[in-house]
Design a protein around this nucleic acid. Sequence first.
RNA 1: CGGGGCGUAGCUCAGUUUGGCAGAGCGCUCGGUUUGGGUCCGAGAGGUCGUCGGUUCGAAUCCGGCCGCCCCGACCA
Length: 575
Amino acid sequence: MRFSRSFGRTLREAPADAEMISHQLLIRGNFVRPAGAGIYTFMPFGYRVIRKIWAILAEEMDAIGGQEMWMPNLHPASLWQATGRWDTVDVLMKVKAGGSREYALSATHEEIIVDLALREIESYRDMPRMIYHISKKFRDEPRARGGLMRLREFIMKDAYTLDTSEEALDAYYPSMIQAYYNIFERCGTPARAINADVGAMGGKSSHEFVVPHEQGEDMFIACTNCDYAANVEAAVFVREGEKPDKLNELGKILTPDCKTIADVASFVGVLTSQTLKAVFYWWTPLGEGEENGRFIFGLVRGDLEVNEVKLINALGGGALRPATDDEIKAGGVTPGYASAVGLDVAADLTEPGVFVIADTSIEAGGNFVVGANEAGYHYTGANYPRDFTISQMADIAQADTGRQCAQCGGRIEAQRAIEAGHCFKLGTRYSTAVNATYLDEKGKPQLIFMGSYGIGLDRLMAIIVEKHHDDYGIIWPDSVAPFQVHLMHIGKGDEVRQTADSLYETLQQAGFEVLYDDRKASPGVKFNDADLIGIPWRVTVGGRSLAQGGVEVKRRSQPDRHLVPISELVAMVSN
RNA sequence: CGGGGCGUAGCUCAGUUUGGCAGAGCGCUCGGUUUGGGUCCGAGAGGUCGUCGGUUCGAAUCCGGCCGCCCCGACCA
């Protein structure tokens, strides 16, 4: 590629609204251009990187038996209605055509896959199968952000497995996990697999691949001692603390202006872990309107926080929002001075009364200070179950730095990260919906077991830049670089020009992808562009080096420059 | 969807407080100069000031609606 003919230009300054380094550098380097919020064009340089990542993904998927295919992005509404996701996936973009016809834009491809499985899979002999494709996804993200980090239209590699049983799915799963490790390793962004919440995908379990990053959207927990790691929404931990040997009597004390746990603890003179915290939500079951929801009373030890995703999972799904003051009071609860003591507690979700869901931490300690459900008063010496009842006990507290690891007893630590990939064991969630079955050895119909495995290519490209850059620009890993060699000539003279022209041919004939900066520009402009674009090898032809018998070769990732005889150039950059 | 910020030349931004000829730097074009780290000099092209409406003799500037973009939160397969 001759630079003088490349489409688009590099920018000296990044657009002011580009905040993340990857966003700034990818725009400045002419890799991408925005078309709208969360919508980007991949310019020629950027598309080359995408194709490199594409090749790595395809190789690793093929290596574990994957078959690449290509699925549509326009999905008939009936397919999404069949799985029940037409109305429940709120980021689904829908389009109308021809009057009454409706389509979903491909937010993901489970619907297409399970429909294909229904048609193509008839016998246990037709499985296992692993198929994948790399194509566009469209999601109506309420908030696109971070350049290529969160997009409304993006490129995803998604693979799907079809198996005869859960055992077969389990048996194959580790090879997919290993392929993912290989992929991220090869892209220069080693990622870590962590246990994750299954979210709207449904299914049994999932692993997220995360790359630690301070601006990441994900929070995960990792043990400082062992290999335990999980998304905060799935992380378990030990509630340290014991029930006291001697239970104090329940006593009521005056606690004016003590509406927060910190206020109460300092007023009474106890640690926050000797209090109980109440939080209130309005919960709407899956597929119901808000009017069919109910008031939920969440209870955790005072030094902990409720994790809303854990809480929703404990309730069996649905949606949660903070309760209004009126809803709280309607439950017989006094905001700021709330506790389960004296409440009319519901036995289960079908019964009237206040549904109190408590974290297991309320049993890791005792003689708690709790609200008296009366403004200005708290109880001391409150103990479960002596002084109050609950509706349900569950793990609803958020894991955080300093807590104890459930696996080894060490200390855990919270870290921010970017989600780079996700593997789901879907099980029969989708095959059940459309009755996708096969005949087993005995001729009996059985449901197909599915898995789905995704990696966002654009996001991965951005993560690579986040991890591989310096003050001057991008430093592409060799594996995904748009070109291997950035050739340029600087200075005057026919010899310089002719030497560079012939090296351009030589290098290409030797099999290298070469970006040849043949522009009539000052050396500073060319060097700065080379640093910005970040191609691994830079080859400079100039009068100075030619006089010394060679050309200058520099690795983008290293500071030193080498004078290399032209005859040795190909060998040099082959390493 | 809640909170905050922004919208003026391709890019970065000034001008808006206090209404009065549309500006700078970079980039682009032309001429010259320079030639190993964003050279220097000169001459140019380029803008319905996001959009619609209102106030006014007069609006980029004041008021209102809408649209778009960014950040935080909610959400997130």
